[in-house]
């Protein structure tokens, strides 16, 4: 139960990373998790399962689409792909996040004050 509590850094963070990863290339669930883990240098503790509710949310909102395909290990898997709406959403979210991060950084940085 309590493992779930740290699955998100903040609401929407996981979705943003998923969209960003899918922007580079369509991937299936397992590959997506591995990719995020690897690229974050394992700094982020992501519970693998938590990816799926996030993916369902994105699917429902039409930000990604999915189709059945075959993985590199020759399994039948569902491959997710960014939609144009998803791309736009990602852009918006990233710029919002950057602004937020900048704000937080300014407040936290000791030099200016």
């Amino acid at each position: 139960m309590n493992k779930n509590e740290q699955r998100d850094l903040f609401p929407g963070a996981l979705e943003m990373m998923v969209l960003r990863t899918l922007k580079r290339q369509p991937l299936h669930g397992y590959a997506l998790v591995q990719h995020i883990k690897r690229n974050s240098d394992d700094l982020l503790q992501i519970e693998e399962g938590s990816l799926y509710p996030a993916l369902q949310r994105l699917l429902k909102e039409g930000l990604v689409k999915a189709k059945w395909g075959t993985s590199s290990t020759n399994r039948r898997v569902r491959i997710y792909e960014l939609t144009p709406a998803g791309a736009k959403h990602l852009e918006r979210e990233v710029s919002r996040f950057e602004r937020m991060l900048e704000g937080i950084t300014r407040v936290l940085s000791p030099s200016e004050s």
Partner: peptide, 17 residues
């Protein structure tokens, strides 16, 4: 173990719909 609570995650994912 790494995946987490399969039942719960399935449940959460369905709840989305």
């Amino acid at each position: 173990r790494e995946f987490g609570n399969v039942g719960l995650i399935e449940e959460d994912s369905r709840t989305v719909w």
